[in-house]
Amino acid sequence: MSNRTAITVDDLTVAYNYKPVLWDIDLVVPEGVLMAIVGPNGAGKSTLIKSILGIIKPIAGSITVFDKPYKKQYDLVAYVPQKGSVDWDFPTTALDVVMMGTYGSLGWIKRPGKKQKKAALEALEKVGMLAFKSRQISQLSGGQQQRIFLARALVQNASIYLMDEPFQGVDATTEKAIINILKELRKSGKTVVVVHHDLQTVPEYFDWVTFLNVKKIATGPVKDIFNDDNLTKTYGINYKVSVQQ
């Protein structure tokens, strides 16, 4: 972990129809961490990620990525949306979806070529999906679709990876495969932020954690702040999680 800050969120408030879903959030994501964002349903976890990416416009606050607004840094950030956010019946193949990850570095009008295809094939290989490259995306299982999304993010070769529930609806094998890739990313100095649901696996998978429930409850290293006190504050009921250090 370096001393640089990957993402700074300052006084962020986001509202849907004037009802705040994120309220006055201050958050610093240090470079090189593998961070889980946890909180109950409706806590604003996805909203936080979408705000960082500029998909949702906040009503107050500012967000910077490596000290500059996101719009100037979008080539440094890769995003893995929720699987359900796209139509998997779209007429395209697994390889083509992964190639979409290269569009950002290409910019407007320029078309993907050999270099982009090679990068996409490498990313598919990394997530163990090379054998499925020509397959129509609706013919993939849920876990395979999630891997395709991960490969699409990998091909962006970004510094920061933001992922919205990458483990949702995937089997145990895929979950292990994905977390291993995330750990590798962290090892190579990347910053990874993941919206996560399974509290049991937080200590095993992540080194940083942010507790969120409309307001920010706590953020910091898992070993320091992943405790019953913060869980109870976030989820509102008494939580007992055995934390394996």
Partner: peptide
């Protein structure tokens, strides 16, 4: 022909299109 890539991306995945600057 000029904007095929952009059209495809924004039709398939609007949020990725946004985050990639399209």
């Amino acid at each position: 022909i000029t904007f095929f890539k952009e059209l495809k991306l924004s039709t398939f995945d609007k949020s990725l299109a946004t985050t990639l600057g399209f």
